[in-house]
């Protein structure tokens, strides 16, 4: 335990939330999640489980700096991204990649290649052909080399999801946020995602061989339950940080069965 604490202290804290209430700014009086206090260390793997409408996407949007916490304090890499200097927000966003649910939010008028290249070309001010080498790496990593000229509307949900991943990785972020990546994909595709996320966490050439910090929100925890990962739950507007796999197994919340599915029931 003490060793774990020392290891944690040595880690750089990527994200820190202190007593934050999360939700829509237009409905500030009715937060979706209350009292989130959470520290995500560099290189950690977090899986947050919750049923539909429990605020998972809101939590992820807050971590991705698309939504401001309604109250409390938030820090990313030791900096308040919502501080007075707007440049901070942009700088911090470059360090976080987001994979949206169901392969959504790709730019519908751009091809697969252009979607993935856009962040690189925009931030490095280069033409598409100048970013070609990085593009090829990303396309190969996501297994979508043959789809470069397709429009997102012509792709199945499975491939749109992969394009989303390639786009999120294009700027080599340090933190990768995934919103329900296994939702609506078949079993072989689920395996692909589990393998790919595990590789990224351990450090892969696509992210400069550096282990990435991973945060997944899901309504089905079981595929992600493995040693070395951290778990938290969202239920009834509240946040509950569980801990590792042992703590998850020991957790006796009756509604945990809903997000664990067959795993908890077979025990």
């Amino acid at each position: 335990m003490a060793a774990n604490q020392t290891k944690k202290d040595e880690q750089v804290c990527c994200v820190k939330l202190q007593e934050t209430d999360l939700g829509l700014e237009t409905m500030a009086e009715a937060p979706l999640i209350k009292g989130v206090s959470w520290e995500i260390g560099s290189g950690e793997f977090w899986v947050v489980g919750g049923m539909h409408r429990s605020g998972k996407s809101t939590l992820l949007s807050t971590l991705g700096m698309l939504q401001k916490p309604l109250s409390g304090r938030m820090e990313l890499f030791g900096v308040n991204p919502w501080g007075a200097d707007g440049a901070n927000l942009m700088k911090q966003r470059l360090r976080v990649g987001m994979v949206f649910e169901a392969g959504a939010r790709l730019l519908h008028k751009l091809t697969v290649l252009e979607n993935i290249a856009l962040p690189i070309c925009y931030h490095r001010d280069c033409r598409l052909d100048e970013a070609r080498e990085r593009m090829d790496e990303l396309l190969k990593f996501a297994g979508i080399e043959d789809l470069t000229n397709e429009l997102p509307g012509e792709l199945s949900r499975t491939y749109r999801q992969r394009v989303n991943l390639a786009r999120a990785l294009s700027l080599s972020p340090e933190v990768l946020l995934l919103d329900n990546p296994l939702s609506g994909v078949d079993l072989s595709e689920q395996q692909w995602w589990q393998d790919v996320v595990a590789k990224l966490w351990q450090g892969h050439a696509i992210s400069g061989n550096k282990p990435m910090t991973i945060v997944i929100v899901t309504n089905h925890l079981t595929p992600w339950v493995e040693q070395g990962r951290n778990f938290a739950l969202l239920h009834d507007k509240s946040w509950r940080q569980i801990g590792g796999m042992a703590e998850l197994d020991a957790c006796d919340e009756p509604w945990l069965r809903d997000v664990l599915g067959e795993r908890k029931m077979t025990e």
Partner: peptide, 9 residues
Amino acid sequence: EALEALAID
């Protein structure tokens, strides 16, 4: 929002 997440204004 996807553009904002990619730090594109």
